[in-house]
C-alpha cells in the first residue's frame, strides 16, 4: 500500500509531466483555453493512460522486445479511439471543441513514455498507481493553466455552461490575449519561472 501511494504522489509533484518533465505540451497549450476543455482532455488522458498501462503491464512478458513499441502504440491508439467514440456519442459539443487534440492523445509522449518506462517493467497494481499519479498530475497542471487563462481572458469562470462567478472590472475589459494562442505560451512560461523562483523546481 505504501508503494502504491508513493507511485501515485510521484506523478503529481516530483515528476509532474507538464511542469517538470515538459512532456505533453501540445494538449496543455491547445486545450487550456477554457476549464471545460481542460476537464474533457484530462478525463481522456486519465482513461487512456490507465487503460494502456493496465493492458501493457498484463501482457509485458509475452510481447517480444523487438515489436514492443508498435504493440504499445496500437494499444494506446485503440483506447484513444474508444474515448473519441464515447465523447462523440455523449458529449458532442466537447468532442467538437477538442477537435483534433482528442485523437492526438495517441501520440502524446506522456502516454508512450509511461508505457515504455514503467508499465512494460512493473506489475499491474504499481502500473495503475503510476498511471493515476501521472494523469492526475497532468490534469492538475492543465486545470491550473486553464483556470488562469479563462479568468484573465474572459473575466469569469464557467463550468459546463453555468457561470460560477464574474469579476467586476475584468469581465468588462477582458485580456483577450490570454484565451488566444500566444496567451498559452505566456502563462506556461510565467508559471515555470515562478515555480523555479520559489524553489519548487530544481535548476538543471
Amino acid at each position: 500500500m505504501a508503494g502504491f501511494v508513493r507511485e501515485f504522489t510521484k506523478g503529481i509533484v516530483i515528476s509532474n509531466p507538464i511542469f517538470i518533465l515538459a512532456l505533453g505540451l501540445c494538449p496543455a497549450l491547445a486545450v487550456s483555453n477554457t476549464i471545460d476543455n481542460a476537464l474533457g482532455m484530462s478525463v481522456g488522458v486519465i482513461f487512456v493512460l490507465l487503460g494502456a498501462n493496465i493492458i501493457i503491464s498484463l501482457i509485458r512478458k509475452s510481447v517480444p522486445n523487438i515489436v514492443r513499441i508498435p504493440t504499445f502504440v496500437v494499444i494506446i491508439a485503440s483506447f484513444v479511439t474508444i474515448v473519441s467514440l464515447v465523447f462523440q456519442a455523449y458529449v458532442p459539443a466537447l468532442h467538437e471543441s477538442l477537435g483534433i487534440y482528442l485523437p492526438l492523445i495517441a501520440v502524446n509522449c506522456i502516454i508512450l513514455g509511461r508505457a515504455e518506462a514503467f508499465a512494460s517493467k512493473n506489475p499491474v497494481t504499481a502500473s495503475i498507481a503510476d498511471a493515476l499519479g501521472i494523469s492526475v498530475g497532468f490534469a492538475l497542471a492543465l486545470l491550473l493553466i486553464a483556470f488562469l487563462r479563462e479568468i484573465l481572458g474572459t473575466g469569469g469562470l464557467e463550468v459546463a455552461g453555468t457561470s460560477l462567478f464574474t469579476l467586476p472590472v475584468l469581465s468588462e475589459h477582458p485580456l483577450a490575449l490570454f484565451v488566444l494562442s500566444p496567451g498559452a505560451f505566456l502563462v506556461i512560461g510565467l508559471l515555470l519561472a515562478l515555480f523555479r523562483r520559489i524553489g519548487a523546481i530544481k535548476h538543471e
Binding site: 500566444p182 496567451g183 505566456l186 512560461g189 519561472a193 523555479r196
Partner: peptide, 17 residues
C-alpha cells in the same frame, strides 16, 4: 535566473505568436 532555459523560450514564443 528563474527565466533561463525553458521559461524564456516560452516567453519568446509568446512574442512570435
Amino acid at each position: 535566473k528563474a527565466m533561463k532555459g525553458l521559461p524564456i523560450a516560452f516567453i519568446t514564443a509568446t512574442m512570435l505568436g
